[in-house]
Amino acid sequence: MLDESRPIFLQIAGRIENDIVSGTLQEEGQVPSTNEFAAFFRINPATAAKGINRLVDEGLLYKRRGIGMFVATGAKARLLDRRREEFVQQYVQPLVHEAHKLGITSDQLIEIITGSTPQAASIERRVAQ
């Protein structure tokens, strides 16, 4: 469930973000407590708290005294925005870099992308019409 590649608190934060983006955790819905996370992943509660507090600091989660932790309204949209930005850095730039190394031109690259996913291709066609 957890791996050694990144600090555990970041992995916990990442999992909650994923659940918000995918809709598993609804906005204004309750998030499991620090202790529940700790028990589930068998990690130190302080580590779980660090991951959750990171999301609280970013305003994605908020605390209700004595009740628990909830997903903030607008959290999903903000995460999607951020992920789109990261998408360029994490996926597109390496892709373009590698394509250049292999001597693939930008046009060829676009062609490959549109050709490789039928859905994407059909969307393109519909947009063009």
Binding site: N35, A39, F41, R42, I43, N44, P45, T47
Partner: peptide, 27 residues
């Protein structure tokens, strides 16, 4: 250990050779 420690925080000293098993429990 994790669930009880979460509810009743205290100082736990865990000596172990099975480091992989306990690594994530340690602060």
């Amino acid at each position: 250990l994790v669930s009880d420690y979460a509810e009743h925080p205290r100082t736990i000293i865990l000596s172990s050779h099975l480091i992989d098993e306990v690594a994530n429990l340690l602060e």
